[in-house]
C-alpha cells in the first residue's frame, strides 16, 4: 500500500484480546485499515475471524485492547460507530416471516429515516442489489443468494462507510458466488469493506489486502498482490529415487542454499523414495549435479506449481 499514508486510517485495532471463559479466542492482534480498502480476513474455521468481526461491530466486548473506528471508541461512542458500520453475520439472520420491503422499512424506522427518504433509499438499493423484483416476497421463501442480497441491502440502508460481511458467499452456488463477488466489488469502490472467508480464492478474487489469521493470531498481513507474488516465486520440486535413503539425500543436498525445506513424501524400505523440495529459485541443475554420481536411479524429477492454497495450508499448519 504505497499510498496508505495519504488515505486516512478508518479502523485502528491495537492488541485486541478476547477470552471466552478460559479459551483464548483472539490473542493480541493489531492492524490498521485505511478508508476505501477491501480487506479479506482469512483463516481456517475456528481461527477467530467471526470473533474479530463481532468485536469490531461492538457485538462483543474485548477482554483487553482497543478498537478505534474513525477515532471513535467503544463503548462511549458506540452510537457514532454504529452509524458508520453495516454488519451482516454469516447466517444472514433476517426475520423470515417479513416481506422484503417490510424488513427494509423496519430497519429504516429503527435507524430513524423519514418516510420519503426511506422510500427513495429502498428504491436505490433495490436497483443496486437487484432485488426490486422480490420486494413483495416473504424473506423465508427466498433462495440463499437472494436472501444474501436483501441482507446486504439492509445493512447498506444507512449508507455506512464501513461494510463488514462474515463469510458472504458461504452456502451459495457458483453463479450466486460470482454475483455476490461483483456486488461486493461494486460496493467496494466507494466504501471500506471487510469480509471473512476460509476460502482463499474467494478473498483473492475480491480483496486488495489479505489478513491471515490462525488460532487467534495474525500470521500474515499484506496486499493480495504481494502475498500472491511472494508465494508464486516459490518452486516446488518433486523427486523420486530408487535405492536411496532420506538422510543421505538430505546430506548431499545440504550445500544448496536455495533449498528451503526438504519434505519426505513416502519411502518403502530404501526401495523407492519420494521427497518434495521447496526452492526459492529454480536450481534443478544443481540438484541433479549433486545426485548424478550416486548409485541412485532417478524415477521422478518434476516441477510443481505452488498455489496460494498450499501456502495458506503451510502458514496455518505451521503455527
Amino acid at each position: 500500500m504505497e499510498n496508505s499514508q495519504i488515505m486516512k486510517t478508518i479502523i485502528d485495532v491495537k492488541e485486541l484480546t478476547k477470552y471466552y471463559g478460559n479459551f483464548l479466542a483472539i490473542d493480541k492482534i493489531s492492524f490498521k485499515i485505511s478508508s476505501g480498502e477491501i480487506v479479506g480476513l482469512l483463516g481456517p474455521n475456528g481461527a477467530g475471524k467471526t470473533t474479530t468481526l463481532r468485536l469490531l461491530t461492538g457485538y462483543l466486548t474485548p477482554t483487553s485492547g482497543t478498537i478505534k473506528i474513525n477515532n471513535f471508541r467503544y463503548p462511549e461512542q458506540a452510537p457514532q460507530i454504529k452509524e458508520l458500520i453495516g454488519y451482516l453475520p454469516e447466517s444472514v439472520p433476517l426475520y423470515k416471516n417479513m416481506l422484503v420491503y417490510e424488513y427494509l422499512e423496519y430497519v429504516g424506522n429503527i435507524r430513524g429515516f423519514e418516510k420519503a427518504r426511506l422510500n427513495s433509499r429502498i428504491k436505490e438499493l433495490g436497483k443496486q442489489c437487484q432485488i426490486n423484483h422480490i420486494m413483495g416476497k416473504e424473506i423465508g421463501e427466498l433462495s440463499k443468494g437472494l436472501t444474501q442480497r436483501v441482507g446486504i441491502a439492509s445493512v447498506l440502508l444507512h449508507n455506512p462507510e464501513i461494510l463488514i460481511l462474515d463469510e458472504p458467499t458461504s452456502g451459495l452456488d457458483p453463479n450466486q458466488i460470482l454475483e455476490i463477488r461483483d456486488l461486493i466489488k461494486e460496493i467496494g469502490k466507494h466504501k471500506t469493506v471487510i469480509l471473512s472467508s476460509h476460502i482463499l480464492s474467494e478473498v483473492e478474487a475480491t480483496c486488495d489486502r489479505i489478513i491471515i489469521i490462525n488460532k487467534g493470531k495474525i500470521v500474515a498481513d499484506d496486499s493480495t498482490e504481494r502475498l500472491t507474488s511472494l508465494y508464486k516465486g516459490k518452486i516446488l520440486i518433486s523427486v523420486g529415487l530408487k535405492n536411496a535413503n532420506f538422510d543421505e539425500l538430505k546430506l548431499r543436498l545440504s550445500n544448496i542454499e536455495e533449498i528451503e525445506k526438504i519434505e519426505l513424501v513416502s519411502s518403502n524400505k530404501g526401495q523407492e523414495l519420494y521427497v518434495d523440495l521447496y526452492l526459492n529459485k529454480d536450481v534443478r541443475e544443481k540438484i541433479y549435479e549433486n545426485i548424478k554420481n550416486t548409485e541412485w536411479i532417478l524415477i521422478e524429477f518434476s516441477k510443481k506449481k505452488t498455489s496460494l492454497e498450499e501456502i495458506f495450508k503451510e502458514i496455518t499448519q505451521e503455527n
Binding site: P79, K82, I85, L88, P93
Partner: peptide
C-alpha cells in the same frame, strides 16, 4: 436462536 439479535445490537439502539 435465529441470530437476528446480532443484527439488532449493531443498530444504533
Amino acid at each position: 436462536n435465529l441470530g437476528s439479535y446480532e443484527i439488532l445490537i449493531t443498530f444504533p439502539i
